[in-house]
Design a protein around this nucleic acid. Structure first.
Lengths: 253, 253
DNA sequence: CCAAAAGTGTTATCCCTACACCCATGG
DNA sequence: CCATGGGTGTAGGGATAACACTTTTGG
């Protein structure tokens, strides 16, 4: 699998042409020293001008025969080797001044299941795909990024937090089964505030998005019931490709 | 002011290049025979292949030295001669199969004040900017459009309806002053259902987005107080260019 | 006076929040 | 048995929806 990034000059670059790139803000979770889940995202270190040496969002040039979504998936696969559990277009950034040459970046954002990322990080460390140029950063502790990528990450974070408030996107970060406390921790990591365990339980139970299993997670205290996502429950609201329908309410809990 | 559209072939077109176009879904209001406001949008008749003769969204090619927002504004001005009261990026459409040549369309959606459109329609009829190729259509009675433009309009409509539910975008369709009944009619036209006048009044009064004036609209019955939009009230939630902040709630009434 | 729209009041219901409280397990 | 997290119950507040009711105009 070859690496593609956003170089300033591709072979045969023409400075009088507007080129289209695709980048992706990939969110996942990693537990910190205190075993508390933190939002993290992978960045790629640039090896060319402009911004040589700075960290940037994973991305690449849009191929002439490639759909936008496919380009985002490819980007994501080349960076992490994984399939996202959620992928959505974020915004098209195209200011003239955002790059020395004219580049319109179609930016996506994605969620990766935490358990799969752990496996991937191990695989990357052993595999030979130049892992030294990819690193995962805590979203609350980002360096200065290349181009307008700090701004882009801010916007993606806003979208994630906003969407977590009225849809079930956050489930895309979970493994197959999980306890309600684990799910609540994830929401707390995303929203950046504590949630009442009792009320959180009732909300997700009444939402119909989870089904109880007969298994329990045993630990230091009373065992907690495991849940799994309900099939047939979309993670988010309709996209531009959905059929005509009368569902025009995304702000429902 | 010159007209720019989305021709299949621009001068010097190369079929091995991905080109970037900008189109805009422009919503406004027009009163029907029963004096009831209807959502309408302007379309442009194509005069080239592909889809020669079909109606399409107003748009044009992105200039190498032009920001995306500016291109959308230019498109809008060329079509209607007006400045939008609201303009927001909708989505980037870039499927390989959506056009014979590879075109990525950055699509915007906009709102135009109803009173200004009336003036513009008159001006267009007298002015010489080929008005016969621009026509306004009721959004509920659209013909088959060129490319994937029907799908795009559907998505823009969904976004407008959704956003009208939790923000004050709809105010962008109103004149300087208006009665609460007029504002309610607009919401009814957008949402496609009747609203309780009493509850609607309380909602917008408590929202703090309107200020009472001392004027009244006199008609066949009891005069209705005129309101005007409050300064310092954004029409919608934050966009990607907003500064870092902790406001991550767009679903507030 | 009457019709109809402008505007006010009242109540039931739902959802969210806060918080008290019981349950089950490992140590 | 006790500390701790899992899980349930409940009362108050705010927003909404339904609808009765009063006010003010033109005809």
């Amino acid at each position: 699998m070859t690496r593609t990034r956003i170089p300033a000059s591709a072979p045969g670059v023409e400075s009088d042409v507007t080129r289209v790139a695709v980048s992706t803000v990939i969110f996942s979770l990693r537990r910190d020293a205190a075993d508390c889940p933190r939002l993290v995202l992978p960045l790629v270190r640039r090896t060319r001008d402009p911004y040589d040496g700075l960290w940037a969002l994973p991305g690449g040039w849009l191929d002439i025969a490639e759909n936008l979504d496919d380009a985002a998936s490819r980007t994501l696969a080349e960076t992490t080797g994984l399939t996202p559990s959620y992928l959505e277009q974020l915004y098209a950034f195209g200011d003239v001044a955002r790059s020395p040459t004219r580049v319109v970046s179609i930016v996506y954002w994605a969620l990766l299941r935490a358990d799969e990322v752990d496996a991937q990080v191990a695989a990357h460390a052993s595999g030979g795909d130049a892992p030294e140029n990819v690193a995962w950063f805590d979203v609350n502790d980002l360096p200065t990024l290349a181009f307008d990528h700090n701004q882009i990450v801010d916007y993606a974070l806003w979208r994630l937090r906003n969407k977590a408030g009225y849809s079930r996107v956050a489930h895309g970060l979970m493994a197959d089964t999980f306890t309600l406390a684990e799910l609540r921790e994830v929401y707390e990591a995303i929203l950046g505030r504590r949630l009442d365990p009792a009320n959180f339980r009732r909300q997700v139970e009444n939402s119909g998005t989870l089904v109880r299993t007969d298994s329990f997670r045993t630990g230091n205290h009373r065992p907690a019931r495991l849940y799994r996502p309900h099939r047939d429950v979309e993670l988010a609201d309709r996209g531009p490709l959905a059929a005509t329908s009368s569902t025009h309410e995304s702000s429902t809990t």
